[in-house]
Design a protein around this nucleic acid. Structure first.
Lengths: 148, 148
DNA sequence: CTTTATAGTTTAGCGCGCTTAACTATTTAG
DNA sequence: CTAAATAGTTAAGCGCGCTAAACTATAAAG
C-alpha cells in the first residue's frame, strides 16, 4: 500500500493527467463531443456490444440520459444500435468504423508530448521502458479478466 | 514516429484511460465539481500562481467563464484569489490546503486498480518498472522546462 | 494629462444534458 | 392468458456553464 512503485505510478499518472487532460477537453469541444461520449466509445471499444442501461450505469447517469446521448451518437454515425435477436427488449450498441476512428484520434490528440518524450530516450532506455510497460499492460489484462 | 515504444505507450494510455476516466467522472459528480475545475486545480498545482485569463486559455473558454468558475472555487475554498501587488489588474490564483487535498483525492479516486495491479507483480518486476517510470517522469520534467 | 490597452467582473440570454414521469414493446411468472 | 418485470424511448422542465457585451479598475503610451 505504501509501496514505492505505487507512489511512482501515482506520480506518473499525475504527469499523464497534466499533459493529456487539457488536450482531451479541447478535443471533445472541437469534435462536438463530450467526456461522456468519449468514455462511452471507449467502453464499447473495449467491451464490444453493450446495452443502453449498461452504458448509463457506467457513466453514472439514468438510462434516459444514456438513450438520449446514444441517439445523438447514432446520428453522428459513431455507434450502431441494433435490436438483440435473443431478447428484443435489448439494444446492442457497437462501434461503427467512424466510432473507431474517433477512439483512435482521441488517443492521438493526447499523444503529442509522448513522441517528444520518446525522442529524449536512448535506444537502451526505450527498450527497458518498453518491456516494463508491456508487463503492466499484460498484467492489467489478467486483472481485467477476473473483474469481467 | 512508428516507434515501437510509442505504440506501447499509446496502448498503456488506453489502459489507463479505460480504468481511470470513469472514476474521475464519478468523482467530479460526487464532489459537485467538474472536469474543468479539476483540470484548473491541476494547472495551478503544477504552475503555482496563475492569472484568470491564463486559466481560461488553458481550458479553452472565455475569461468570463474562467472568472465565474473561479468565483465558485473560491467560495468552495479550493483556491485563493489575491491581487498581484506588482500589477493590480492581475489576480493570482493559488491552491488552498483544501484545494491540495482535492488534487490528491482526485488522483486516489483513479488509483484503486493500480494497487491491485502492483500486487500482481513480483518484487523484481516492481523494481524494474519503478526504474522505468522514474525515468519517464524525470525526462518529462526536462521536457517541461523547455516548454515553460 | 489624456488615450489606449489590459485584466477581470457582471449581466442577460442561450443551449445542452440531466432527471422524472409517462409510455411502448417484449419477456417472464403465475 | 393475464400480470408483473424489464429495456428502452419520449417529453417536460430545470439547472449549469458558456458566450457576448457592457462595465470597473489599473497600467502603459503618446
Amino acid at each position: 500500500m505504501t509501496n514505492q512503485l505505487n507512489t511512482t505510478l501515482l506520480q506518473w499518472m499525475q504527469v499523464v493527467m497534466r499533459h493529456s487532460m487539457r488536450n482531451l477537453i479541447l478535443f471533445t469541444k472541437d469534435r462536438n463531443s463530450s467526456m461522456a461520449m468519449i468514455n462511452a466509445l471507449f467502453r464499447v471499444h473495449y467491451k464490444g456490444k453493450c446495452g443502453v442501461s449498461d452504458l448509463g450505469d457506467h457513466l453514472g447517469v439514468s438510462n434516459a440520459a444514456a438513450s438520449q446521448m446514444l441517439e445523438k451518437m447514432v446520428q453522428q454515425g459513431l455507434v450502431a444500435r441494433i435490436e438483440d435477436p435473443q431478447d428484443r427488449r435489448n439494444k446492442l450498441i457497437s462501434l461503427t468504423p467512424e466510432g473507431n476512428v474517433l477512439v483512435r484520434e482521441s488517443m492521438e490528440a493526447r499523444q503529442g508530448w509522448l513522441t517528444e518524450l520518446v525522442d529524449l530516450l536512448s535506444p537502451a532506455e526505450q527498450e527497458q521502458i518498453q518491456t516494463s510497460l508491456q508487463l503492466l499492460i499484460d498484467k492489467t489484462a489478467t486483472l481485467d479478466q477476473k473483474n469481467i
